[in-house]
Amino acid sequence: MASQGTKRSYEQMETDGERQNATEIRASVGKMIDGIGRFYIQMCTELKLSDYEGRLIQNSLTIERMVLSAFDERRNKYLEEHPSAGKDPKKTGGPIYKRVDRKWMRELVLYDKEEIRRIWRQANNGDDATAGLTHMMIWHSNLNDTTYQRTRALVRTGMDPRMCSLMQGSTLPRRSGAAGAAVKGVGTMVMELIRMIKRGINDRNFWRGENGRKTRSAYERMCNILKGKFQTAAQRAMMDQVRESRNPGNAEIEDLIFLARSALILRGSVAHKSCLPACVYGPAVASGYDFEKEGYSLVGIDPFKLLQNSQVYSLIRPNENPAHKSQLVWMACNSAAFEDLRVLSFIRGTKVSPRGKLSTRGVQIASNENMDAMESSTLELRSRYWAIRTRSGGNTNQQRASAGQISVQPAFSVQRNLPFDKPTIMAAFTGNTEGRTSDMRAEIIRMMEGAKPEEMSFQGRGVFELSDERAANPIVPSFDMSNEGSYFFGDNAEEYDN
């Protein structure tokens, strides 16, 4: 993207840094990872977990959730003011799984939030270390993106479920800051804005008074975040219109849905970061690795190297396929839920299948599930090659597409044709070009129609051997075009429920 120079890199967003050079960025990201790792080690000690239990991804998720809940100030305040039966607002906890007599047992633990905050700050040299908290939120978000298709949420806001490739980060909490905003897809931002506008339509006082002023500035800020994701002048001009509207209503909703559809071809720039579970960072720190000293990046080879040398386990339900569970977590670790499966298959070195073909449910185990038949197995999170994460949407291309997802959002900077089903997408653009945004709409449609099938995206960008740390010898991959490109292809993934 041309304006790259004016933006802070995501590592800076990730670490609240002012302008830093590459070495400083690597050190501050490393410091953040160190903090998460030290916190995780301490929690495993508190909970008396064995090494194996500490490497269980379900335990990692519970521990991450506990610290996120302990620092969720708004919710904590709300819980104190609106006490609900049987919930102690000062405590947080969740299921911890232990191996007892050759069987997995679930144990519900409860801790004072104050105590968890103390352990977290102690692991982070006394700081609140917001960057580390956001990092864990993005890992949870990436896992949700890989596990669930947001059909219901899309339909509720009037969008087409086939636009799911635009929904990265749709389950990120509001408090995820600049680093969170960077990884949100165009569809996620559109959905947040539509929800806001709908509230304004239904509630006369939404934009009024002292609160209304705050609401208005939040609305304009979200519009600017979305505008910054678009790469064409016409899309940005249309966002200006939406932002400046005196009284946002149905016309703005129409414009936003139009823009979301246009992003299936004229893709937005959305950041991709490899955020790993805390149970990967903990053992690495415990083994003596100093992330701050060595430096770390979320968008280069580092996460690949770390996963190459990590042992992570997962509980497996009786009829689940461990290899499929591994694929789910591998995609989440690489922030690749909406990437082209052919690119992923090449990088991973084994075939990556669409969601609907995987015999696996989510990673988390519900409290009512029976533990008797639970097994555990090693997650295979290694890769054959590594590639640089991208934040450009890439230019655009036609490809055989599917009944489910009709476009992709690249996660890796790797040369390819970008699949999208042009006739299906263009069919949504018939007729409606009147109104105050008509010239911009016409211009956007013209650009979409001009998108050429034979153009290559990320020209000359390749993948790298894991021994090639400096990215000196790019390998331009070859793809098996007979395979499906979309992950949520004609899909039956479970729906995400809060």
Results as ranks from 00 to 15, higher is better:
residue 2 A to L: 00
residue 4 Q to K: 05
residue 6 T to R: 00
residue 7 K to M: 01
residue 8 R to Y: 00
residue 12 Q to E: 00
residue 12 Q to F: 08
residue 12 Q to T: 09
residue 13 M to Y: 01
residue 14 E to W: 08
residue 17 G to R: 07
residue 19 R to A: 05
residue 19 R to V: 08
residue 21 N to V: 06
residue 23 T to F: 11
residue 24 E to A: 07
residue 25 I to P: 01
residue 27 A to H: 14
residue 27 A to K: 15
residue 34 D to F: 12
residue 34 D to A: 14
residue 36 I to P: 01
residue 38 R to Y: 07
residue 38 R to A: 09
residue 39 F to A: 15
residue 40 Y to W: 09
residue 40 Y to N: 01
residue 41 I to R: 06
residue 42 Q to K: 14
residue 49 L to Y: 15
residue 49 L to I: 10
residue 50 S to W: 00
residue 51 D to T: 15
residue 53 E to I: 05
residue 54 G to K: 02
residue 55 R to P: 12
residue 56 L to N: 15
residue 58 Q to E: 12
residue 62 T to V: 07
residue 67 V to H: 10
residue 71 F to W: 08
residue 72 D to T: 12
residue 72 D to A: 09
residue 73 E to C: 06
residue 74 R to L: 14
residue 75 R to P: 03
residue 77 K to V: 07
residue 78 Y to H: 14
residue 79 L to Q: 09
residue 79 L to Y: 10
residue 79 L to C: 12
residue 81 E to A: 02
residue 81 E to G: 11
residue 81 E to M: 09
residue 82 H to G: 00
residue 82 H to K: 11
residue 83 P to Y: 02
residue 85 A to W: 01
residue 85 A to M: 07
residue 86 G to C: 03
residue 89 P to A: 15
residue 92 T to P: 05
residue 96 I to K: 04
residue 98 K to H: 13
residue 103 K to F: 01
residue 107 E to A: 11
residue 107 E to M: 07
residue 108 L to I: 10
residue 109 V to P: 04
residue 110 L to A: 02
residue 110 L to G: 03
residue 110 L to W: 08
residue 112 D to T: 04
residue 113 K to A: 01
residue 115 E to I: 09
residue 118 R to V: 11
residue 120 W to A: 08
residue 122 Q to L: 14
residue 125 N to V: 11
residue 126 G to N: 12
residue 126 G to T: 12
residue 127 D to S: 11
residue 128 D to I: 07
residue 128 D to C: 04
residue 128 D to M: 04
residue 129 A to D: 00
residue 130 T to S: 11
residue 132 G to K: 03
residue 133 L to N: 02
residue 133 L to R: 03
residue 135 H to N: 11
residue 135 H to I: 05
residue 136 M to T: 06
residue 137 M to C: 04
residue 139 W to F: 14
residue 140 H to D: 11
residue 141 S to A: 07
residue 142 N to T: 04
residue 142 N to S: 13
residue 142 N to Q: 08
residue 142 N to K: 11
residue 144 N to F: 05
residue 145 D to N: 04
residue 146 T to I: 01
residue 146 T to F: 01
residue 150 R to M: 08
residue 150 R to L: 13
residue 151 T to C: 02
residue 151 T to Y: 02
residue 153 A to M: 02
residue 155 V to K: 07
residue 155 V to Y: 04
residue 156 R to E: 10
residue 158 G to L: 13
residue 158 G to D: 02
residue 160 D to W: 12
residue 161 P to A: 15
residue 162 R to C: 02
residue 162 R to G: 11
residue 166 L to I: 07
residue 167 M to W: 10
residue 168 Q to H: 05
residue 170 S to A: 10
residue 172 L to F: 07
residue 172 L to Q: 14
residue 175 R to F: 06
residue 177 G to N: 02
residue 178 A to C: 05
residue 179 A to C: 12
residue 179 A to L: 10
residue 184 K to Y: 05
residue 184 K to A: 10
residue 184 K to C: 07
residue 184 K to S: 03
residue 191 M to K: 07
residue 192 E to M: 11
residue 194 I to H: 01
residue 194 I to E: 12
residue 194 I to C: 05
residue 195 R to K: 12
residue 195 R to V: 06
residue 198 K to E: 03
residue 198 K to D: 01
residue 198 K to F: 09
residue 199 R to P: 08
residue 202 N to R: 03
residue 203 D to E: 12
residue 203 D to F: 01
residue 204 R to F: 02
residue 205 N to P: 03
residue 207 W to E: 08
residue 209 G to I: 01
residue 210 E to K: 09
residue 211 N to P: 09
residue 215 T to G: 12
residue 215 T to K: 14
residue 217 S to Q: 14
residue 217 S to C: 10
residue 218 A to I: 08
residue 219 Y to W: 12
residue 219 Y to S: 13
residue 219 Y to I: 03
residue 220 E to Y: 02
residue 221 R to A: 03
residue 223 C to Y: 12
residue 224 N to M: 09
residue 224 N to W: 08
residue 225 I to F: 12
residue 225 I to Y: 08
residue 227 K to C: 09
residue 227 K to R: 02
residue 227 K to Q: 13
residue 231 Q to T: 02
residue 234 A to E: 06
residue 234 A to C: 10
residue 234 A to L: 03
residue 235 Q to K: 13
residue 235 Q to V: 02
residue 236 R to D: 01
residue 238 M to V: 03
residue 239 M to W: 03
residue 241 Q to D: 01
residue 241 Q to S: 04
residue 245 S to I: 01
residue 246 R to A: 03
residue 247 N to K: 09
residue 248 P to V: 08
residue 251 A to D: 05
residue 252 E to G: 01
residue 255 D to Y: 13
residue 255 D to N: 14
residue 256 L to Y: 01
residue 257 I to Y: 03
residue 257 I to V: 08
residue 262 S to T: 08
residue 270 V to C: 09
residue 274 S to R: 00
residue 274 S to V: 03
residue 275 C to E: 04
residue 276 L to Q: 13
residue 276 L to Y: 02
residue 277 P to H: 08
residue 277 P to S: 13
residue 278 A to S: 12
residue 279 C to V: 13
residue 284 A to W: 14
residue 285 V to E: 08
residue 287 S to E: 06
residue 287 S to P: 08
residue 288 G to R: 15
residue 288 G to T: 03
residue 289 Y to Q: 10
residue 294 E to A: 14
residue 294 E to T: 11
residue 295 G to F: 09
residue 296 Y to R: 06
residue 297 S to C: 07
residue 297 S to V: 09
residue 299 V to F: 01
residue 299 V to P: 05
residue 299 V to D: 05
residue 300 G to S: 14
residue 300 G to H: 07
residue 301 I to Q: 08
residue 302 D to E: 02
residue 309 N to E: 00
residue 311 Q to W: 01
residue 311 Q to V: 07
residue 312 V to L: 13
residue 312 V to K: 05
residue 314 S to H: 04
residue 314 S to K: 04
residue 314 S to G: 14
residue 316 I to T: 13
residue 316 I to N: 13
residue 317 R to V: 08
residue 317 R to M: 03
residue 318 P to R: 09
residue 320 E to C: 07
residue 324 H to G: 09
residue 325 K to F: 08
residue 325 K to D: 06
residue 325 K to Q: 10
residue 326 S to I: 13
residue 329 V to F: 11
residue 330 W to N: 04
residue 330 W to I: 11
residue 331 M to T: 10
residue 332 A to Y: 06
residue 333 C to D: 00
residue 334 N to E: 10
residue 334 N to F: 02
residue 341 L to H: 05
residue 341 L to M: 11
residue 341 L to D: 08
residue 342 R to D: 03
residue 343 V to R: 02
residue 345 S to H: 10
residue 347 I to W: 02
residue 349 G to H: 14
residue 352 V to N: 05
residue 353 S to I: 13
residue 358 L to R: 07
residue 358 L to I: 13
residue 358 L to S: 02
residue 359 S to K: 04
residue 360 T to P: 10
residue 362 G to Q: 07
residue 364 Q to S: 11
residue 366 A to H: 10
residue 371 M to E: 02
residue 372 D to I: 07
residue 372 D to Q: 10
residue 375 E to F: 14
residue 376 S to G: 15
residue 378 T to W: 00
residue 378 T to K: 14
residue 381 L to F: 12
residue 382 R to K: 12
residue 385 Y to H: 05
residue 385 Y to W: 09
residue 386 W to L: 12
residue 387 A to P: 05
residue 388 I to M: 00
residue 388 I to P: 06
residue 388 I to F: 01
residue 390 T to R: 04
residue 391 R to D: 05
residue 392 S to K: 11
residue 393 G to L: 01
residue 394 G to S: 03
residue 395 N to L: 00
residue 396 T to F: 12
residue 398 Q to E: 00
residue 400 R to T: 11
residue 401 A to K: 14
residue 401 A to V: 01
residue 401 A to L: 00
residue 404 G to M: 14
residue 408 V to K: 07
residue 410 P to Q: 08
residue 413 S to E: 01
residue 413 S to D: 00
residue 413 S to V: 07
residue 413 S to Q: 07
residue 415 Q to N: 06
residue 415 Q to M: 10
residue 415 Q to F: 12
residue 416 R to A: 07
residue 417 N to K: 14
residue 418 L to C: 15
residue 421 D to K: 00
residue 422 K to T: 12
residue 424 T to D: 14
residue 427 A to Q: 12
residue 427 A to M: 11
residue 431 G to H: 13
residue 432 N to V: 10
residue 433 T to M: 06
residue 435 G to V: 05
residue 437 T to M: 02
residue 438 S to D: 04
residue 439 D to V: 00
residue 439 D to N: 12
residue 439 D to R: 04
residue 440 M to K: 05
residue 441 R to N: 09
residue 442 A to F: 00
residue 445 I to L: 11
residue 445 I to C: 15
residue 448 M to D: 10
residue 448 M to K: 12
residue 449 E to M: 08
residue 450 G to M: 11
residue 451 A to F: 11
residue 453 P to D: 12
residue 455 E to P: 08
residue 456 M to C: 12
residue 458 F to Y: 15
residue 459 Q to G: 15
residue 459 Q to N: 13
residue 460 G to M: 12
residue 461 R to G: 07
residue 462 G to Q: 00
residue 464 F to R: 00
residue 465 E to D: 03
residue 466 L to V: 05
residue 470 R to Q: 00
residue 472 A to M: 02
residue 473 N to S: 15
residue 478 S to W: 11
residue 478 S to L: 13
residue 479 F to Q: 03
residue 479 F to Y: 12
residue 480 D to S: 14
residue 485 G to A: 03
residue 487 Y to L: 04
residue 488 F to M: 07
residue 489 F to P: 01
residue 490 G to R: 13
residue 491 D to A: 03
residue 494 E to P: 11
residue 495 E to F: 00
residue 496 Y to K: 09
